[in-house]
């Protein structure tokens, strides 16, 4: 025991220690324990909530990255020259043995399915067709175009002579818009959280309001600075 915790008066300390029956009554014990058990039995597990807090931002970041990566190929799809092997061929071209002609690419049917059958027959030895759900690549090869039936038509058109400048610009605008809309949606979420806190306090649900503030602080580094004046004083007293 440190000096800080030594009994100041041993006699008084002994009297206090020997005092019997200063324990809570059984009915108080029972009420408290029952309430404690009810509280966790009815609440969603904090385990999942905590993991939700961890994984949601990661998931959002992964989604944004996937969108950016997915849009990026559209910028580079300026079809200055596509290798002949990348130009989808028609069934007729396969049967006739004709060399794929870039000039025909513009008229190549968008629907890859007829070509799929031909490609599957003539290129069976090549790398296996990928499932329809495979991620789309920038320059789908003949053997893959068959499998990527779910790919957007614009990707398979790949017109040889058409410059995809408008497409690249629109892709870039879409990317920028995505970032801007992401920021806007984030601001909306912060605003919603603040309103929720205000509503909880209005209803006298102080504890839930404090928990919501703590959660907002974990999401936004300057949460307290974003609060309206009527909540700042209260927020300063909320444990971080």
């Amino acid at each position: 025991m440190t000096a800080d915790r030594e009994p100041i008066d041993p006699a008084l300390d002994a009297m206090l220690r020997e005092n019997p029956a200063e324990t809570p009554p059984a009915h108080v014990d029972a009420a408290i324990l029952a309430a404690a058990h009810r509280a966790v039995a009815s609440a969603p597990r904090a385990y999942s909530r905590r993991h939700w807090r961890v994984w949601l931002p990661l998931g959002a970041a992964a989604t944004v990255a996937a969108v950016v990566i997915g849009l990026h190929p559209l910028e580079r799809q300026a079809p200055q020259s596509l290798p002949a092997s990348d130009v989808p061929v028609t069934a007729a071209a396969v049967q006739s043995g004709a060399t794929p002609d870039r000039s025909n690419a513009a008229t190549t049917p968008v629907n890859p399915q007829p070509a799929a059958a031909a490609n599957a027959q003539s290129h069976a030895a090549m790398s296996p067709a990928r499932p329809a759900s495979a991620p789309v690549r920038a320059a789908p090869r003949r053997d893959e175009a068959a499998a990527e039936s779910a790919a957007p038509p614009a990707r398979l058109e790949a017109p040889a002579n058409a410059r995809d400048a408008p497409g690249a610009a629109s892709a870039q605008r879409a990317s920028e818009a995505g970032v801007t809309s992401k920021q806007a949606s984030r601001e909306v979420r912060v605003g919603d959280a603040i309103e929720r806190i205000r509503a909880l306090r209005r209803d006298g649900r102080e504890v839930e309001a404090a928990a919501a503030l703590v959660q907002l602080r974990e999401t936004v580094s300057d949460a307290d600075a974003r609060l309206p004046p009527d909540l700042r004083d209260w927020a300063s007293a909320v444990r971080r």
Binding site: N19, E22, T23, D29, L33, A36, V40, R45, A46
Partner: peptide
Amino acid sequence: AYAAGDASAFDRLYARHKGALYR
């Protein structure tokens, strides 16, 4: 642990501190 949903953790915590707090 109790905050994460383990009610028995609260039971132990309560048993440890109820006497001193009640006094």
